[in-house]
Structures are given as structure tokens and as C-alpha cells.
């Protein structure tokens, strides 16, 4: 039980920490394209860790498998890259300033 609790707490805090790092990247990095990196990677793993924690928690406390959290993981892992790609295309289309280096020719 001790090990389970430790694992769960670790997953919860790790999920929240990744979310925080993603948002810190969004707030801190210098241009629109670098800002996209934080949310598109870190928040995906963040919500993945948290959903996994929820899956373990409900499976243990209810004593029956609770697997619908997998839906959240799969859904977010599929949709986050799509929205990041579309937002990046919009940023390229609007010719937003690029910090260091040059924008690709259209």
C-alpha cells in the first residue's frame, strides 16, 4: 500500500509539474514558434501522467478496473499535435517575427 501511495503521489506531482513547465515555456520563451514547444510536449505528458494516476486510483479504491482515463490520454495525444501544427501554420501564414534565424521561404 505504501508503494502504491508513493507511486500515485509521484504521478500526480509529475503531471502537475509538466503542466507547469509547459506553461512556463509559453510565458518565457522569445517568439511564437518556440512558445509552441512548451504546451505541445509538456502538457501532453502532464495530462497523461495525471490520467494514469486517476486510472490507478479508481482501479485501486473501487476494486474494479477503471480504464476510461485511457480515452483522455489517447485523445490528447492525438489532438495536441494537430492543434499545434495548425497554429504554427497560422503563425507562418501571418509571417510572425522569428527570433534568431530566418523564416522559411513561402
Amino acid at each position: 500500500m505504501r508503494v502504491k501511495e508513493f507511486l500515485l503521489s509521484f504521478l500526480i506531482v509529475a503531471g502537475a509539474a509538466f503542466c507547469f513547465l509547459g506553461s512556463l515555456g509559453l510565458a518565457r520563451l522569445p517568439d511564437t514558434f518556440t512558445r509552441l514547444h512548451g504546451p505541445s510536449k509538456a502538457t501532453t505528458l502532464g495530462i497523461g501522467c495525471m490520467a494514469l494516476a486517476s486510472l490507478v486510483w479508481f482501479t485501486v479504491t473501487r476494486r474494479e478496473p477503471s480504464v476510461h482515463e485511457l480515452l483522455v490520454i489517447v485523445f490528447v495525444a492525438l489532438t495536441t499535435p494537430i492543434s499545434a501544427h495548425m497554429v504554427a501554420r497560422a503563425a507562418l501564414h501571418r509571417r510572425l517575427p522569428v527570433w534568431r534565424g530566418e523564416a522559411p521561404p513561402q
Binding site: K41, T80, P81, A84, H85, A88, R89, L92
Partner: peptide, 10 residues
């Protein structure tokens, strides 16, 4: 997009 350091943009 999901893997290290890169992001597909267009």
C-alpha cells in the same frame, strides 16, 4: 511534434 526538440509547422 511529440518528440524531442522538433515541431511540424507546415
Amino acid at each position: 511534434t511529440l518528440t524531442p526538440g522538433t515541431l511540424s509547422a507546415d
